[in-house]
């Protein structure tokens, strides 16, 4: 590659990075400024005081919200991995009546936007008495067509001879599933896990509907509250909360980026 071309590439890369990262960097800087400094139009903090972070934890039960978000995301992740891998296993390794029809129905669920079904789902959760509970925040998301599809694609690459050998030697299905199929699919499971955790952590509409209680409220709804309540004048504190909220997912993304990309691509191309 010519020097000229790589120079141009670098310049464009840096411009791109500055534009993409600007809002995140901006939030970070604001989180170190006091209300008075913001009004004066100070653009760079002269001291990196953590006061806003302390205030954020004091004024709202941020720790509680973070914990709730973590628990909810973790439960959904485990639930999706378990439920999806069981179904994917059946679609790949088991012969049973109506298998193709059921697989078609699984794919068809991807055509139904969650928002189009949100009203009856809300009423169902209310009827179950699951509002303001981890159950209501997690169980509706356990079955995921995308997850079943992704894992099915991977399970199909496992040599069928392995399955036959297990059958001949009388290994039970569940043992084969648990001790052979799952360990061979670690990468796909990790991809789906990262995906589940990220999307659940970032969920907005559903937790807004089914929680109105601090005990189970997730951190995203906590942010909305901070921004609408009297805190609105203390933008530094709000931004400190924003930084705390985005940290776990950004880290997860940076660590799991390659995995996630590969997995999402599988869904895209196949």
């Amino acid at each position: 590659m010519s020097i000229f071309r790589s120079m141009v590439t670098y310049i464009l890369l840096v411009i791109g990075a500055v534009i993409v990262m600007f809002p995140i960097g901006y939030a970070f800087i604001i989180s170190f400024l006091s209300g008075a400094q913001l009004l004066q139009g100070v653009l760079w903090p002269d001291e990196w005081s953590l006061q806003n972070y302390v205030t954020a934890f004091e004024k709202v039960p941020l720790l509680r919200y973070l914990w709730n978000s973590f628990i909810v995301s973790f439960i959904v992740m485990i639930g999706q991995l378990l439920v999806s891998s069981l179904a994917a296993y059946a679609f790949v390794f088991l012969r049973f009546w109506g298998r193709d029809v059921l697989f078609f129905m699984t794919i068809a669920t991807m055509l139904i936007p969650w928002e189009a079904t949100v009203i009856p789902n809300f009423l169902t959760i209310q009827k179950f008495g699951w509002t303001n509970s981890y159950l209501g925040l997690t169980v509706p998301f356990f079955a995921l067509a995308f997850g079943i599809f992704l894992l099915r694609q991977h399970f199909k690459t496992i040599p069928f001879e392995l399955y036959e050998a297990a059958q001949v030697s009388g290994v039970r299905h569940f043992r084969f599933f648990w001790y052979v199929v799952l360990p061979l699919s670690k990468t796909s499971l990790a991809t789906l896990g990262v995906y589940s955790f990220l999307t659940t952590w970032n969920m907005y509409l559903w937790p807004l509907l089914v929680t109105n209680d601090e005990k189970v409220r997730t951190v995203q709804i906590g942010l909305k509250q901070m921004q609408t309540q009297e805190m609105a004048t203390e933008w530094g504190v709000v931004m400190a909360a924003v930084v705390i909220v985005i940290m776990p997912t950004l880290l997860l993304l940076f660590i799991g980026q390659k995995q996630l990309q590969k997995g999402l691509m599988q869904g895209a191309i196949k």
Partner: peptide
């Protein structure tokens, strides 16, 4: 075999039935 297949599929389809298929029909009904 059939029974076993159904067993593995069951959690997904129970959840699809409650949280996807039923609410879609119910939305139409409402």
């Amino acid at each position: 075999q059939n029974f076993e297949g159904m067993l593995y599929i069951f959690p997904s389809f129970l959840l699809f039935a409650i949280f996807v298929f039923y609410p879609m029909v119910r939305t139409g009904y409402l």
